[in-house]
């Protein structure tokens, strides 16, 4: 398994690990059976800026690195910008991922969306992000994944 230097850096020195006690958006995606779970905590201010973000991940090197990179990419951004984060952008920022690890980047994207969905829900705002996101397809189950870019970089 060949990880890029960037991936190894984020794996060995993950940014934003931990919990936020007074988070106002928390999302968990993945499942232990598949071998990866990501939990993301957001602190969003009144002008919808993500002022703080933390994560906890159970998973492989790529799962930890993509979580770390995703948190870096949305920290200080608006909710809208964060919603625009794609798995492809995470892969690019990491300098590529092995083909078998692409699903980790999908999971990272979904973790961000899931945490934002929770933020909206707590505020009582209608949104279309509440679809089930508890499986990233790694376990071979038949879900709709074609909206993600699953090409190897």
């Amino acid at each position: 398994m060949d990880y890029s230097e960037k991936v190894m850096d984020h794996f060995a020195h993950p940014r934003n690990v931990g919990e936020i006690e007074d988070a106002n958006g928390v999302g968990t995606v993945g499942n232990a059976k598949c071998g990866d779970i990501m939990k993301m905590y957001l602190k969003v201010d009144d002008s919808e800026i993500i002022t703080d973000v933390k994560f906890k991940t159970f998973g492989c090197g790529a799962a930890i690195a993509t979580s770390s990179m995703a948190t870096e990419m949305i920290k200080g951004k608006s909710i809208n910008d964060a919603l625009g984060l794609t798995n492809k952008a995470v892969i690019e920022a990491l300098g590529g991922l092995p083909a078998v690890k692409i699903h980790c980047s999908v999971l990272a994207e979904e973790a961000v969306k899931s945490a934002i969905a929770d933020y909206y829900k707590r505020k009582g705002i209608e949104n279309d992000l509440t679809r089930e996101m508890d499986c990233n397809g790694c376990c071979g189950c038949e879900h709709d994944h074609h909206h993600h870019d699953t090409e190897e970089e």
């Binding site: 398994m1 190894m8 794996f11 060995a12 071998g35 990866d36 159970f58 998973g59 492989c60 090197g61 799962a63 930890i64």
Partner: peptide, 23 residues
Amino acid sequence: EGESLLLLLDMEGICASTGSACS
């Protein structure tokens, strides 16, 4: 998860293996 465990052990010079799917 086993793969991340292997990577960290490798950084300490310890070569091992895992039964995790991720590896």
